[in-house]
Design a protein around this nucleic acid. Structure first.
Lengths: 149, 149
DNA sequence: CTCCTTTTGATAATCTTTATCATTCTGATA
DNA sequence: TATCAGAATGATAAAGATTATCAAAAGGAG
């Protein structure tokens, strides 16, 4: 379903190679359920492969993002964050706490949302002649823990 | 409806002062229909008030954002962008072109959206005990102009 | 007018990301 | 297998955006 098999396919025919650093980054994103920043990915990579430099992590995440394998997010803390586009978590959106910065994934009511969003996408695409590839929905507010302080 | 009247009220009782730089920034955001970056706001301020420094613009936009008067966005070009929270443009969301970076505001189908979002907010708030203040919906893709290239 | 807090300007410092470039790696081809 | 061209990498410099610092200025309460 997910994993290496899928990735090899995507790399074939795009002129890119599925190298060790790239596969390592994909595996790390595949294992975690968090939204990792570049330095977080680098830290994990570094444990297994100290030879891989951080510039490669930047380039890899950018490539994977442009290939559509990885989604890039900016939650407002000044650093980009990444997660696998088709992850075990499934389709979801985000609650962002303005108090502590915590990110909560939610996939409740997601069927209703998917239905709504896909209709909206169709209408927008038509009206604005805009070819939609992806979307992000973020809710900002105060999480349970921050409320209790 | 919009404008200074509203702003004075918000500043009263929060321990903050509505100073010349702050009012200037608010006026600039009130006049434009674009999503201005810090240096763009600074450039406009600088024309009328060359004495106001860019650090003040950073601090002001951050303050206004925390006060809820201004919305902060990150569209992926590395700089934060700001617009008045309650602007002449009314409630809207964004189409972001991955080709040229263009941002298109849309407020089509917005009634349907508002209804959907407010229901969703209520359900999410309840289920996750999360106090929602605002939301952002971004669609990413390729705009008309980039398609024609 | 005086005191205390807020705000500001200039600038240094930090942090993230991108650019550069010589070297290494890879796969295709002969 | 040896060769070659393009792709990828690591180290590091450079660029850009944002935050921190701190002394000076401004504003409001008494």
């Amino acid at each position: 379903m997910f994993g290496p098999h899928r990735w090899h396919g995507k790399f074939r025919g795009c002129g890119c190679r599925l190298t060790l650093p790239r596969e390592t980054v994909l595996n790390i994103l595949n294992r975690t359920d968090k939204h990792l920043s570049v330095d977080e990915v680098f830290a994990v990579v570094n444990r297994s492969y100290p030879g891989i430099g951080i510039a490669t992590i930047y380039r890899t995440l950018d490539l994977l993002s442009r290939m559509g394998l990885v989604s890039k997010f900016e939650f407002g803390d000044g650093k980009s964050r990444y997660e696998l586009a088709e992850s075990k978590k499934g389709h979801h959106h985000h609650l962002v706490c303005n108090g502590c910065g915590r990110i909560i994934d939610y996939s409740d009511f997601i069927n209703k949302e998917v239905k709504f969003v896909s209709e909206l996408e169709k209408e927008l695409a038509e009206k604005h002649k805009f070819k939609i590839n992806s979307h992000q929905i973020h809710f900002y507010g105060i999480c349970k823990e921050c409320t209790n302080k």
